[in-house]
């Protein structure tokens, strides 16, 4: 099984008008399909910055980041997010004016999947994350946090990519929903062959991961794996 993502001594510097802040220093690691990775660390340690680089929302200021062997600066990063990598957040970030079903259909609409097919597939994804049919027509603000995060995961599945990046996915959830989401993420990695990379403070999430990285002051080290 080859490495989907490979970071090679990457660094990142936030540069404002008045100062430069080094967020990542010589981070080297690799991620492959079928495994769950947890990146732990204190707030401000650089975890989320690293995740945004993995999502192609920005590019490293130093080093190289390879996606399927191609340097991230040389690929269409919008197309990468549309077709290969999905991100879920602690705040769920669903489209507020689309229904649950429409939210899941949206990535497929971008990929020009026929309406009938995207509806069927969206229903299948929602069913896979265990969301009852009755909620498909609801607006995101009408369902619980755990349900919203499941919709976000279903939407990530709908994009068809094999990389799922999660930034504190259980941060807003109670312990029961937290367990459901962790189980879902593990299933995606182990049964659906996703590379699941989770940035978390949560020990239970880290415990469930196959590989755990720790991040401190912008430097990454292997904790377990």
């Amino acid at each position: 099984m080859g490495n989907m993502i490979e970071a090679e001594k990457i660094g990142y510097v936030y540069q404002s008008k008045y100062q430069k802040t080094k967020a990542l220093t010589e981070v080297s690691c690799s991620f492959e399909q079928g495994r769950v990775y947890a990146i732990t660390g204190k707030s401000g340690s650089g975890k989320s910055t690293f995740l945004s680089l993995l999502a192609g929302l920005d590019v490293p200021t130093e080093g190289n980041l390879y996606i399927d062997g191609k340097e991230i600066r040389e690929i269409d990063r919008d197309a990468y997010r549309m077709n290969q990598a999905s991100v879920i957040y602690q705040a769920f970030h669903l489209f507020p004016l689309l229904t649950v079903l429409e939210n899941v259909m949206f990535p497929m609409e971008l990929q020009h999947v026929a309406k009938k097919e995207r509806k069927e597939r969206a229903q299948a994804y929602l069913s896979k994350v265990g969301l009852p049919d009755a909620l498909y027509g609801k607006m995101p603000n009408m369902i619980s946090g755990g349900e919203q995060q499941r919709v976000a995961i279903a939407r990530a599945m709908a994009s068809g990519g094999q990389i799922l990046l999660a930034d504190e996915p259980t941060g807003n959830l109670d312990s029961q929903n937290e367990a459901v989401i962790v189980e879902l993420l593990c299933k995606m990695a182990h049964e659906e062959n996703y590379a699941v990379i989770v940035v978390t403070h949560n020990d239970k999430v880290a415990e469930a991961a196959d590989v755990v990285y720790g991040m401190s002051d912008g430097r990454l080290e292997v904790v377990r794996g």
Binding site: D78, A79, R81, M82, H93, F95, P96, L110
Partner: peptide, 13 residues
Amino acid sequence: REEFALMRLQGVK
């Protein structure tokens, strides 16, 4: 802004 950012996150240019 959130909708705009979400679109971008989904890969919309």
